[in-house]
Design a binder for these strands. Structure first.
Lengths: 212, 212
DNA sequence: TAGATTGTTAATCGATTAACAATC
DNA sequence: TAGATTGTTAATCGATTAACAATC
């Protein structure tokens, strides 16, 4: 049967994990996988995987499971990963540099097309094959590459202002590493990378366990 | 009334965001805040904040709101942030270096007490006031500092093996930056920092919006 | 006092899981 | 065919929201 409900965001957030696991399986030379097996690899129940996939179609075979490559292709198409996505990166401190250098972005369809920093001493420096540019170039670069994705890796104090400029220049989705909640128009997607908050949520449990 | 239910993990994961927002308010010299105002800052409903806090006690005053400093202190106590937490960091590539250099950990009660890398060329190098050590020292350092928290920033291929060693050495909570799901005993907490997966979940929506 | 806002209960909403007919 | 596993429905579980009495 066909599904017409818009898939919930929780489901969308799991799809990239399914895709990644399938990529690993493919590398290992595994051709077929059941929802059970896939679930064990990523600590998700088999029922959840099947339910999630059912929002998008029927990709498996009863009695057999899923063809790894075919399912991967389906999920990549669903996620829009059939083409490269241009991304601009704002803030080239040590974190920004690590992001710029990480080939895990590039190999996964995310191409950084612009590096920006407010520090005049940094502007002009080369990171890989990109040159750090001044904010004044932000708009032009975003337009030129039709970038709709941006990564913010600036200090918390300026993150909101950077976000405003990005949105103004046409960015539609922001991955924010700065420890502040951004206020953006509702048609702009914002997600957070917040290791300190995550660690603080784990100290809660550690504080309650017996310390040694 | 008193609450006896264990607070759900979603609630625990929001507490650090409340704490951070209260810290900003404190810096701004704001002494009192309502659940409404706090909620607007972090895009959470007032009802949710009040409900979340009710798992831990009564911290506000009807008609007034919350005393910023008092509520912050309460939440920090709940999260176990009244003392510093020793953390070991495994993997000192460019990401690991950025983490090691980030003072946002240190200022928030997270003290990196050991840096480890498999690359003999890196062992002995100094990052800030720490020297990169060989894996053979992992156990000793974890014991010495009673570290129960670890950060993994190694390549995906070795992340599981590193996790195994960490757990074996007594680590109880892991923040994993490697793009693999870790298998650990159920009394070990694992959380993920996964920018690629997050970006891939946003491309889903962008692919469906009108491109320009 | 009147107005504001809490803490909590009940209602709603949404997500996960269990179960099983369909079928490879 | 018999065994395995899908896709889907219904049941369960859990989280969010609305509403309001209590009270500062």
């Amino acid at each position: 049967m066909e599904r017409l409900d818009a898939p919930p965001d929780v489901v969308i957030r799991r799809l990239p994990l399914y895709a990644r696991s399938l990529r690993y399986l493919l590398e290992e030379g595994v051709h077929s996988v059941s929802s059970q097996e896939l679930g064990e690899r990523i600590n998700v129940t088999a029922a959840q995987i099947r339910k999630d996939l059912s929002y998008f179609g029927e990709f498996g075979k009863q009695g057999i499971g899923y063809d790894v490559e075919k399912l991967l292709n389906h999920i990549e198409r669903i996620l829009g990963l059939t083409h490269k996505w241009p991304v601009v990166l704002v803030g080239v401190g040590s974190l920004g540099q690590a992001i710029a250098r990480y080939e895990g972005f590039h190999s996964q369809g995310l191409q950084i097309v612009g590096l920006f920093d407010a520090d005049p001493a940094k502007v002009g420096q080369q990171i890989g094959d990109l040159t750090i540019q001044d904010f004044s170039q932000l708009r032009a670069v975003i337009r030129e590459h039709h970038a709709r994705l941006a990564i913010i890796a600036v200090p918390a104090t300026v993150a909101q202002s950077v976000a405003d400029q990005l949105v103004e220049a046409g960015v539609r989705a922001i991955l924010n590493y700065a420890p502040v909640v951004l206020q953006t128009p509702e048609d702009v997607w914002v997600r957070y990378i917040d290791p300190v908050a995550v660690l603080h949520s784990m100290t809660y449990y550690l504080a309650r366990e017996g310390g040694e």
